[in-house]
């Protein structure tokens, strides 16, 4: 029986690895069962880090699982005639298998930091600040293209409009419909009006919880036109599942004409309703 059980444990690394390879290789029925298309150039590094950790942990997984199988196979009481190795441990081994993983883990941690800083701490700038030294704290930050406000259960979007300032008269309002120009660094201000939500762009590797009472910014650089999902990734109530938005990446010209058209539409309807309403 020991052999059968050993083989069961051998199946873990074999099938475990095979399943991932199957998905990565995009073979039926697991087509598109892997990292979705990434349109955000700078966040390619996140996919790279994911794969880096996958290869590293995969190696450890295969190694330790094979050892487990081999020991079970070899030291099955029914077959192993040798006496038990009466020992309580090995100081050398303990030192080796503490230091090696410690160094590896520390390396992984440090290796992540730049990507994290780029994604969350280095908001795009449009030039040096008052002291005219680029790369300092008071660099002139790129203003947000739009304010995205999460509420149960929709994304309300307010474009800064021509003057690039939020809260002025030329602001353009949409719901669940976010358009951005391609090949430009996009900065969005994200807020919540009621409960927690999370602004998740699977295709741009962007995810940020929106917290009522906090003003936050996210940024990405879409390198490809198309339509993509905006997902709410933080539980926000019974309708959480349907809090779906659409991201449309289009050429700068298309974007500008779309924005102008939306603006015109809005002018028309606000004249017919109450004038000057915010």
């Amino acid at each position: 029986m020991g052999r059968i059980w050993s083989i069961l444990f051998l199946l873990v690394p074999i099938l475990g690895v095979a399943f991932f390879v199957w998905a990565i290789a995009d073979i039926w029925p697991l087509n598109n069962h892997w990292l979705p298309e990434n349109i955000n150039e700078p966040s390619r590094v996140i996919d790279g880090l994911f794969m880096f950790i996958l290869y590293l942990t995969g190696t450890v997984f295969i190694g330790t699982s094979l050892l487990l199988f081999w020991f079970l196979w070899k030291y099955d009481a029914d077959r192993n005639a040798e006496p038990v190795k009466y020992m309580h441990g090995s100081h050398t081994l303990e030192v080796v298998w503490s230091i090696l993983p410690a160094a590896t883990l520390l390396f992984i941690a440090i290796y992540q930091m730049n990507a994290w800083a780029n994604a969350r701490m280095r908001r795009p700038t449009i030039g040096p600040g008052v002291d005219l030294i680029a790369g300092t704290a008071d660099d002139e930050l790129k203003p947000p293209l739009a304010l995205v406000t999460g509420r149960q259960f929709e994304w309300r979007i307010r474009y800064a409009g021509k003057d690039r300032l939020l809260g002025t008269n030329d602001d353009v309002f949409t719901v669940n419909d976010l358009h951005v120009p391609v090949n430009e660094e996009i900065v969005l201000q994200i807020e919540s009006e009621d409960v927690l939500h999370s602004f998740f762009l699977p295709n741009a590797r962007v995810k940020q919880d929106v917290v009522p009472g906090m003003r936050q910014f996210i940024w990405f650089l879409p390198g490809k036109t198309g339509r993509y999902d905006i997902v709410c990734a933080e539980l926000c109530g019974w309708g959480h599942y349907k809090m779906k938005g659409r991201l449309t990446v289009e050429s700068a010209d298309d974007f500008n004409s779309w924005l102008a058209a939306e603006h015109a539409k809005q002018e028309q309807s606000s004249f017919s309703a109450s004038e000057g309403e915010e």
Binding site: V45, I46, I53, T57, I108, Q112, A119, V206, K207
Partner: peptide, 15 residues
């Protein structure tokens, strides 16, 4: 380890 890595966690958090 994937979740511990902050940039990777941006993508896989709450998935």
């Amino acid at each position: 380890i994937f979740m511990a890595a902050t940039p990777v966690d941006i993508f896989i958090h709450d998935t």
